[in-house]
Design a protein around this nucleic acid. Structure first.
Lengths: 110, 110
DNA sequence: ACTCTTTATCGTAATATTGCAATATTAAAC
DNA sequence: GTTTAATATTGCAATATTACGATAAAGAGT
């Protein structure tokens, strides 16, 4: 026990959960926000932006990359990270859809 | 070590991360989708809808409730759960905002 | 080749999450 | 009051996450 039983859920449910999980840490939210803030994608100073040690930041970046939320291109001896719009569009569409569904059902018992 | 360093991040970042984390499990996504699917809030059969034991489902419900994503009203000897629109609006607004920001910056280096 | 800079990986300790059996709680139904 | 049904809590084992020091890898500049 202890491991998530992903096989019992639909692919879509697992996909959204994976994306949400990747964003379920303030450091990773901060990384996303920083990537959004800087105008160019030529980054390389994400480590200095966060109150965490370099290996920790590197690990968070890896997780965001694994979830498909960011892309990283090697640019000389540094790496150019930027947000992958596709993944963000998925999340946005998912919650947008939920919101409209919620608005349609006007039953408010609680 | 091992514990998340929430104190180093902004309240907003922690808030979004908490909501995302709560949704970062397929069972909890499935619960949200089920609550969305049923027309009335009078639930009480969430356990039967999921491929998990009753204590496990109860725990997931508790986490969703702690995050503010669902509300639970005692209704006789069963409990009436439903989605808390406020929390969902927060997430939706957050990702909606990110999406529009992404669309504005047309620089695509990766 | 050597050094510097940047990023990744390894190893490991602390903590958190996941899942469930057993048990407790609570309120309706009898 | 006893039983029944629904949900919560406790306790525990398995696994995952978080964080970082130490170290490795790889390109840039000298």
């Amino acid at each position: 026990m202890g491991a998530t039983k992903t096989e019992h859920f639909t692919d879509k449910q697992n996909e959204i959960a994976t994306l949400a999980k990747a964003l379920g840490h303030p450091a990773r939210i901060a990384i996303m926000e920083y990537l959004l803030k800087v105008d160019t994608c030529i980054c390389g100073d994400i480590v200095n932006e966060l109150p965490l040690a370099q290996p920790t930041v590197s690990q968070h970046l890896k997780e965001l990359k694994n979830a498909g939320l960011i892309k990283g291109d090697i640019e000389g001896n540094s790496i150019c990270y930027c947000i992958d719009e596709k993944a963000l569009n998925k999340i946005q569409a998912y919650f947008g859809n939920i919101k409209t569904k919620l608005e349609k059902k006007k039953i408010n018992c609680c």
